[in-house]
């Protein structure tokens, strides 16, 4: 009995930690969808770029990889702003199909540029705390999990304060709720698009650092599966709902890890989509759909 509880607790922590990366991805996707109404299929590439930026700075500087959040996040904000300005702004409002193909095109550009710069071999880095575990009775949890969960909570609180307490954040929310109304307030909605896309990419970049720090492997093509799960999460949680993205991310993180523990690793990726299908049948607008922002 003791053994089972220990194992379950460890799976829960593993799930929470995995959920953090999904939450950061899905929150960014949701912000971008809310303001621009576009579905950015290339969002996983920002995560991938975040892992490589962390990797490069780690190899070059030897800094504690957690500190490299201060590099990956702002660099990805800039990459996101440039991507929006060059690729999405010119085609905004010309039809969904154009947006889909532009974002599919961006996937290949990013993947090939990264493969060219860093080759396409699997890479990994190690956290300086990887051997430290925190004991809680018989439960052993790596310190890294606590740090990653803590960092994610801090980023989400920061995002909340920015969106609700600052003038710029309010303008982003206004653009998301009513674009025409926002223009009548003198809000330059194109700037809000650019800024939102940058923030979304920055959150994905932070997720990339956390991905790398936790010791997971990465290569230039690793972004797709997490991105698809990000989509599943925002559909489960409700399009445009940040609370939904958080709950959805935790559900997927926990479900995946319980599944791989009980049914085996092969079911890990399938379970997200089984949950997605169930949610769509029971509540097509998602768990938090149409209420929150």
């Amino acid at each position: 009995m003791e053994g089972i509880i220990t194992i379950i607790s460890q799976v829960v922590f593993w799930g929470l930690y995995a959920g953090c990366i999904y939450i950061l991805l899905a929150t960014g996707l949701n912000l971008i969808f809310g303001v621009m109404k576009i579905v950015n299929f290339a969002h996983g590439e920002f995560l991938m770029l975040g892992t490589y930026i962390t990797f490069s700075f780690f190899v070059l500087s030897g800094f504690n990889p957690y500190v490299l959040l201060c590099a990956s996040l702002p660099i990805l904000v800039v990459v996101g702003i440039i991507t929006e300005r060059l690729c999405f702004r010119p085609i905004l409002g010309t039809g969904k199909l154009n947006e889909i193909f532009v974002s599919l095109g961006i996937i290949y550009v990013f993947q090939n540029v990264v493969a060219m710069l860093w080759t396409d071999e699997w890479k990994t880095i190690q956290s300086p705390y990887k051997d430290i575990t925190i004991s809680w009775g018989s439960v052993q949890v790596p310190l890294d999990y606590f740090i990653i969960i803590g960092i994610t909570i801090c980023i989400l609180i920061g995002l909340y304060l920015f969106l609700h307490r600052t003038s710029l954040g309010r303008a982003i929310r206004a653009t998301s709720q009513n674009r025409k109304g926002a223009m009548l307030m003198g809000i330059n909605v194109e700037q809000m698009d650019m800024l939102t896309f940058g923030i979304g990419a920055g959150l994905a970049g932070a997720a990339g650092t956390l991905w790398a720090v936790s010791g997971q492997v990465f290569n230039p093509y690793m972004g797709s599966i997490p991105a698809i799960k990000g989509f599943a999460i925002i559909i489960i949680g409700g399009l445009g709902s940040i609370a939904g993205a958080i709950v959805g991310g935790l559900i997927i993180g926990l479900a995946e890890n319980f599944t791989s523990f009980t049914l085996g690793g092969a079911w890990k990726d399938a379970v997200s989509f089984i949950i997605l299908i169930i949610v769509l049948i029971v509540k097509p607008t998602g768990l938090f759909g149409g209420k929150d922002e």
């Binding site: 309010r170 009513n178 109304g181």
Partner: peptide, 12 residues
């Protein structure tokens, strides 16, 4: 302009 449909931010 005060538009015909008001265009308020209804969730604020």
């Amino acid at each position: 302009l005060v538009p015909e449909k008001r265009e308020l931010f209804s969730r604020m």
